[in-house]
């Protein structure tokens, strides 16, 4: 395997190596002229140029877009609207009745996303922890079992969505199972509650292995002698879990929770392919709202989509800062040990 890999690698990189040799002469000249700093600039340039053009610049531009109105694509053709778009998103005649909001779809998407985040992240963390605990036992063929739970993580969201759309179909295999045990078939994706539950369940299915894997790494870092000492003292397993495992897993757990939150807030692909946001707006989430308003609907409103994405981005920035702070704290603690 490794040899074949090396060989394939050599073939693929052959033109690149030639290219690298060609670049050497002009780069020597540049090195002479600009020195070390010049070389640093050269090495950074391609990545930072792409970063700048396709990530940083759009970020600034996004704020500008959110302050304009109209259907035109380019900023120069758009009218300044101040905070009008935000006002439109957030204004409701009566905040107890979301239908009275100017953009009731936004509020529906916001509500759905909030509910999704709470339910999905909770269930995901509980299931991933249980899976990690079980995989951390003395199992034969642990890597096989780990792979079992990890498998769906690599599948594309479209594939995941279609696999489950086929299973949850009215004439699908799940209903066949229900009929076989004497129950009535259910129209899973055409019932508001079931469709929402399906979106939650399918995204858990797709991401469980990823989170279980990180938690498993955390579990494996807990020193064995702690457990041996507990066993010597005849500590009950439940007590071992609450007093040793959980506290020592906490740093990893927090990072995983924040990561799961970041992902859940942006939920789109799997749910979109599975339900298309329906039935009605039962599974319309924020990212899909942005997509619909900005790109898919007949009356595109880029300004409104930008404003909504900035509100969503604000939540994500807070969550990411939290994640980075937690990660740094864990690193410091690991160093102290």
């Amino acid at each position: 395997m490794a040899q074949v890999g090396a060989w394939v690698g050599a073939v693929i990189t052959a033109p690149l190596r030639g290219f690298a040799r060609l670049l050497d002469v002009p780069l020597r000249v540049w090195q002479r002229l600009a020195g070390q700093n010049g070389m640093a600039a050269f090495f950074l340039l391609p990545n930072m140029a792409i970063f700048g053009i396709f990530v940083l610049f759009p970020l600034g531009l996004n704020i500008a877009y959110s302050l304009t109105s109209g259907g035109a694509l380019f900023l120069a053709d758009r009218n300044f609207a101040g905070l009008g778009q935000y006002q439109r998103l957030l204004t409701c005649a009566d905040y107890t009745n979301l239908l009275s909001c100017q953009e009731d779809q936004f509020w529906t998407a916001l509500g759905n996303t909030a509910l999704f985040v709470v339910v999905q992240v909770t269930a995901l963390i509980v299931l991933a922890t249980a899976t990690a605990l079980i995989l951390n036992r003395e199992l034969r063929a642990r890597s096989f079992w780990r792979a079992v739970f990890f498998f769906p993580v690599l599948l594309s969201p479209v594939v995941v969505g279609l696999i489950w759309r086929w299973i949850l179909d009215r004439n699908g295999v799940l209903n066949a199972g229900l009929v076989a045990v004497g129950l009535d078939p259910v129209n899973w994706l055409l019932d508001r509650n079931f469709a929402f539950a399906a979106a939650v369940g399918v995204t858990i299915w797709a991401h469980l292995g990823f989170f279980a894997l990180i938690l498993l790494a955390g579990l494996q870092a807990i020193p064995r002698d702690l457990y041996e000492a507990a066993e010597m003292d005849g500590t009950r397993p439940a007590r071992v879990f609450w007093r040793i495992t959980l506290p020592l897993l906490m740093p990893n757990m927090l990072v995983v929770i924040v990561l799961a939150l970041i992902r859940a807030v942006q939920v789109f692909d799997e749910a979109f392919v599975l339900t298309g946001g329906g039935p009605g707006t039962a599974t319309l989430f924020l990212t899909q709202y942005i997509y619909e308003v900005g790109f898919a609907s007949l009356l595109k409103n880029p300004g409104l989509a930008a404003a909504a994405s900035i509100l969503m981005g604000g939540v994500l920035v807070v969550l990411t800062l939290l994640q980075l702070a937690l990660g740094r704290r864990n690193e410091r603690k690991a160093k102290l040990k």
Binding site: V55, P58, A64, Q266, F268, F295, P302, A306, V317, T320
Partner: peptide, 18 residues
């Protein structure tokens, strides 16, 4: 930029790519 997933900058990115 870790904080900025693509889904947050869709509109301006589309205009730039366009």
């Amino acid at each position: 930029t870790l904080m900025i997933p693509l889904s947050v900058i869709l509109v301006p990115l589309y205009s730039i790519v366009s």
